[in-house]
Amino acid sequence: MRIHCPHCGPRGHDEFVHHGDAAPRRPQADAPDAAFHDYVYLRDNPAGPYRELWFHAAGCHSWLVVERDTRTHEIRSVTFARGDA
């Protein structure tokens, strides 16, 4: 796979570390236990477009949000995770 790092350009996927679902948001400190449980343990596993976190470990050390179709590996977008809402 080739991932277009917005900082470094197109690079082979072996430069990156995969981290999984980009959707979960860390709950506030006063959120109920269940919110933390869901944040830590619950992940979707869709067949189709999926927004996931990748770390450019052998590059610029950016955390990226990569939108990848899990059926085809087609990558639709790559953005910096910093400031991702």
Binding site: R26, F55, A57, H61, W63, A81, R82, G83
Partner: peptide, 17 residues
């Protein structure tokens, strides 16, 4: 060493930019 550094980058860039 590598895992902790990567974890810190995650905390900084993703959780608390």
């Amino acid at each position: 060493a590598v895992a902790v550094y990567q974890h810190m980058q995650h905390c900084h860039q993703v959780l608390w930019p």
